[in-house]
């Protein structure tokens, strides 16, 4: 039986507490991994490993970090993701809430986009696959 959203959240929370050395109560659904929880690029390696172990899933690198889209001149213009690029991002990351990002889609802001809730939705999409 698939775990409930609460169960997924608890395990994601546990992985983030372990990987980032933050307190349980800091890991709220709205918290951003980079800005609020202080995740650095090296921490994503650790987060991915912990989620793979906790949920017995495989997480390919490009699913969480769509660098190929963000560095592709076809999808980026003047440092901003184009409408076409946004369509690609949504296709790649249907679980991510891109609403705020879409208002001013500067590539440099993409790194601070993902929230804890996005991670929960991502894991749920993997478990449902």
């Amino acid at each position: 039986m698939a775990p409930t959203s609460d169960e997924v959240f608890q395990k994601v929370q546990e992985a983030l507490v372990d990987a980032l050395g933050v307190d349980d109560d800091e890991v709220t659904p709205e918290a951003t991994l980079v800005g609020d929880l202080g995740a650095e690029s090296i921490d994503f390696l650790d987060i991915v490993f912990k989620l793979e172990k906790a949920f017995d899933i495989q997480i390919p690198r490009e699913e969480l970090s769509p660098e190929d889209i963000l560095t592709n001149s076809q999808y980026v213009e003047d440092g901003k993701v184009t409408a076409e690029g946004l369509v690609e991002l949504k296709k790649r990351m249907p679980w991510a809430n891109l609403e705020e990002f879409e208002k001013n889609p500067r590539v440099q802001d993409f790194g601070n986009l993902l929230t804890v809730q996005d991670m929960v939705r991502y894991v749920e999409s993997k478990l449902a696959a």
Binding site: L45, V48, F49, E52, K53, R61
Partner: peptide
């Protein structure tokens, strides 16, 4: 070795 990834290992 617990896990080998493209950019690191555990």
């Amino acid at each position: 070795i617990d896990s080998l990834q493209e950019n690191g290992a555990f």
